[in-house]
Design a protein around this nucleic acid. Structure first.
Lengths: 154, 154
DNA sequence: TATTAAACGAGAATGATTCGCTTTTAGATT
DNA sequence: AATCTAAAAGCGAATCATTCTCGTTTAATA
């Protein structure tokens, strides 16, 4: 996703192309880990120190309204954001609060087909998101990466 | 779900049985519409005017920690709560912000089986929630309910 | 009924998000 | 290229859901 692509996307939605909007979209794509508004602000300020907090929130709203990004809600109170690159679901780790993308087209087809056959009365589905809650397992190591010969604390 | 049941549930989890905890659980069950903390507080205060806001939040945390209720995440910023009566998913209306329960054991089995066959690498699933986003259709009326003979504005 | 850790109450504090208002700017028009 | 104007950005203050602090009360147990 290049800056040209970003400009293109904004333009397609009839949004004015501003440095702030480009910066926010770029930040979400670069950070790539469901950043909070704060994360995004910190990232942007490295290059544009005087971007207003309120502006970032306003930009985020505009981008969500125009379906260029999605909001991701956690059990904690801060909102997180996600670039819309490809339909995907989320794995929520109850231990670490990490959110990982989960791509599975096979599953998407399964769900789409399921709801094509079993419509929900009086409801028109626009999107289906799976929140898969659980824990990341620490993978077993075949060999330790590092050896710590020294004691942890002097 | 009677008060005796509620006492039983608290007791099973090793939680002290307090009037406040009973009131909160009762409120969530009675309100039955994914209430926010504010909704719950308003409801409880009708009968117990001096329940502290902080207490309600603390009780909600305790109940979530002990899996007696669930948090319902929305794209908006307030958290909502839901009694755990039976496994279910949610329909989110983008027009009205209403959240409706969606029960479908058939679908639950489908998903459970799917993930039994297709495990997610390094992730241990505890719960799967579907957020089905869309719009409630207003059902077609066979005849109009009212006729408005007068002009809309004088 | 005495003990005590857990729970509660009241209100202040926090902090993410929004508001109100002014200034700036993107994009269109001359 | 200069002008115009609605949209966007900036900035500080305001909002408000949620959390913290800490003194008081209470549920559970002996």
């Amino acid at each position: 996703m290049t800056i040209t692509d970003i400009r293109q996307q904004l333009s397609e939605k009839g949004l004015k192309i501003t440095p702030q909007r480009i910066a926010v979209l770029e930040a979400i794509i670069k950070l790539n880990n469901h950043p909070s508004a704060e994360n995004i602000i910190d990232y942007i300020r490295k290059n544009y120190p005087n971007v207003s907090t309120a502006t970032v929130y306003k930009v985020l709203d505009a981008l969500v309204d125009n379906e260029l990004i999605k909001r991701v809600k956690t059990d904690k109170d801060v909102m997180r954001y996600d670039a819309i690159l490809h339909a995907h679901h989320h794995l929520y780790c109850t231990k670490t609060d990490k959110i990982k993308d989960y791509f599975n087209d096979d599953l998407n087809h399964l769900l789409t087909n399921y709801f094509k056959k079993h419509r929900i009365l009086d409801f028109e589905i626009a999107d289906i998101k799976l929140q898969i809650v659980g824990k990341f397992k620490t993978p077993k190591k075949t060999a330790p990466k590092k050896r710590n010969i020294l004691p942890k604390k002097a």
